[in-house]
Each structure stands twice: as C-alpha cells, then as structure tokens.
C-alpha cells in the first residue's frame, strides 16, 4: 500500500501496535481473572448479570466499529444483526438443542451472511444508501419475526436454561465467561484488522474512496469483508442473549437501546482505534447499569442520545481524540 492518503492512518496503526500481541493477550487474561474473582467475592448473581450487559456492549460496539469506524460506513441496523443472532439461537434451541458454544458460530455465520447480502446489494452505491438500507432492515426483520409463530411471533418465546453446566457453580457465571470471551475475541479481531492490510485499505477508502480505488485498493471487496465480519460479531454477541433473558420477544431482541448504544459508544470513545469502542462501552455501559437502578430507563436512553449528540458536535474524534488534542496542546 503506497497511497499517500493513508500515511496518517499508518502512523496511527504503528503507534497502537507498539504493544505486542502476546502482551495484550496477557493483559486481557489477567484482567478477566481479576474481574471474575472480584465479582465472585461480591457473591451475587446480579453482579454477573450487570457485568454481562456491559461486556455485551463492548462486543457490540467493537463489532460495529469494524465497519463504521474503520471504513466510515454507518450501520444503523445493529439491532437487526443482533436479533439474527438471538433468533438463530432460539431456532437451534427449539429444534436440535445444540449447546451454546456450538450455537454461537452458527449465529455468527447467519448474521455474517445477512451482512454480506445487504452489502452486496447496497455497498456499490454511495455509503448513505447502505446506512438507509440498514435502518430499514431492522423494521423488516422485526416484521418477519412478528409473523413467524415458530420463534414465538409477537407473543415471544420462553427459553429454559440448562440445569447444570460443567465447571461453573451457576449458569449466570457461565454466561458471563462466554460473553467475556466473545468481547475479548471481538476486540482482538478488531485490533488485528486494524493493523492488517484490511485495516489500512479501509482507512484509505474512508479518507477518499476514489483516490483509494485509483491506488489499487479493492474497495468493494474490502467493504464486503468488513461488513461480513462486523455482522458476524454482532450476531455472535446476540446468540447467548435468549439464555440471558430467558424470555425473548421482538421488542427486546430489536431493542432501540441496542441500536443506539452500539453506535453511541464507539463515537463517544473514538472510532479510529480498537480502544475507543472499549472505553465508550465501559463508560456508557457502566453508567447505564448504575442509572437504570436509580432513574427510569427511558430517561436513561434520553441521556445517551444527548451525550451522543454533544460528543459528535464538540469532540468528533471521541474521548481518545479529545485526550490526544489536549496532549498536543500542552506540548
């Protein structure tokens, strides 16, 4: 890749890869272990459930950012991909009853295929058409699910958690660990993409698609790969959800809160690197876990919306960009 337009992003990529992969993995494992035993000390299943929700947002925000942040293509249909994962899981539960660990890859594949199909139809046009199509996608999938009585239709469906699970004292803990692995996996995948030819190509076409194509970046193929990976990770994050809530109906699976948060978190954290969505998700996710206990959930969502608008207006590069600007000013 020799396009001059990507030198800035290239420098950024080198800066973030100064931490080696084994070191990052070590940090992840150690912090996960600390988190798990810390939560065990609290000895309440609520702590695990709250942590699950925050981690789910880490996974969703990271997955969204692969297409939205790196390539600049806004996917408004996060709820559609998430719900594809959720309902794939429901279908498997009602038919073959595979264990959760087998269900997750299947859900990821289904959501990835959805992304590929959507991308194939709309990504050849200007980016905004893709955004509009994803916005309407959630409405359509919602309509299909409402009319499909096998997966519960509009009345919803109950899911029984397995009675026992090996190695874990409760199913909540098991779900927490599954989501922890999914979240870390998503972050590692995002980080790998960022430092690979794919990440550099996406950054180039984000800056100037025409120039990137002239320099030989296969933009459509890269966008399709990014959409598929992003969709698959969103779907994977949805797969354990039926067992988390034990009752799924269209309003929960296609929840507005999921769509808004998955977009707000990377934009608030900063979309250029893998760290941005993680910071955004941890901050906003933890805030909401505390806030839902104290204030109503509608007001809670209103706050997220207002914070999102303030951030994109005042700090368009998120918290990370803001901190970077402050540092540069100090020099």
């Amino acid at each position: 890749m020799t396009s001059p337009s990507i030198t800035a992003s290239g420098a950024k990529a080198r800066a973030s890869s100064s931490l080696g992969f084994p070191l990052i993995l070590l940090i992840c494992v150690v912090s996960s272990a600390v988190l798990y035993f810390g939560l065990s000390q609290l000895d309440s299943s609520y702590a695990f459930l709250a942590a699950y929700t925050v981690l789910q947002f880490v996974a969703l925000a990271t997955a969204w950012n692969i297409l939205g942040g790196y390539a600049g293509y806004v996917n408004f249909g996060v709820a559609a991909f998430f719900a594809t994962g959720v309902y794939t899981s429901v279908i498997i539960y009602k038919t073959v009853q595979w264990p959760l660990l087998v269900t997750i890859p299947v859900a990821a594949a289904a959501a990835g295929l959805l992304g590929l199909g959507m991308g194939y139809l709309t990504l050849r046009l200007r980016g905004v058409f893709f955004s509009i199509a994803t916005l309407a996608l959630a409405v359509v999938l919602n309509t299909i699910v409402v009319n499909w009585s096998f997966v519960g239709g509009s009345r919803g469906v109950y899911v029984m958690r397995p009675q026992e699970i090996i190695l874990f004292s409760s199913y909540e803990r098991y779900l927490f660990v599954v989501m922890l692995v999914l979240a870390i996996g998503s972050v590692l995948i995002a980080r790998t993409i960022e430092n690979s030819w794919l990440g550099r190509g996406l950054a180039a076409l984000k800056d100037d698609e025409m120039a990137a194509e002239c320099a030989g970046v296969p933009s459509l193929r890269m966008k399709l790969i990014a959409t598929t990976i992003s969709g698959a990770l969103l779907g994977a994050a949805g797969a354990p959800f039926p067992f988390f809530v034990t009752y799924v109906d269209p309003p929960t699976a296609f929840s507005l809160s999921i769509a808004v948060n998955a977009i707000a978190m990377p934009l608030i954290g900063g979309t250029a690197t893998w760290l941005g969505p993680v910071i955004g998700a941890l901050l906003l996710g933890t805030f909401q876990q505390i806030a839902t206990v104290t204030i109503s959930s509608a007001l809670n969502l209103l706050i997220v919306g207002v914070v999102l608008v303030i951030f994109i207006t005042v700090a368009p590069n998120g918290i990370i960009g803001f901190v970077k600007d402050l540092r540069e000013k100090r020099r």
């Binding site: 806004v74 507005l256 977009i263 934009l267 509608a298 969502l301 209103l302 994109i312 368009p316």
Partner: peptide, 22 residues
C-alpha cells in the same frame, strides 16, 4: 457530514422519540 452528520441526525431522531415518549 458523512459519519458524524448521519450520527447527529440519528441521535436527534432518538432524542425526539424518547422526549415524546416521556
């Protein structure tokens, strides 16, 4: 306007909807 502008209108859509709801 492409990324941030879209997100701005999305945020606005959302704020108005929740405000009407409240």
């Amino acid at each position: 306007e492409s990324l941030q502008g879209l997100a701005f209108f999305f945020g606005l859509l959302f704020i108005i909807e929740v405000a009407l709801l409240l």
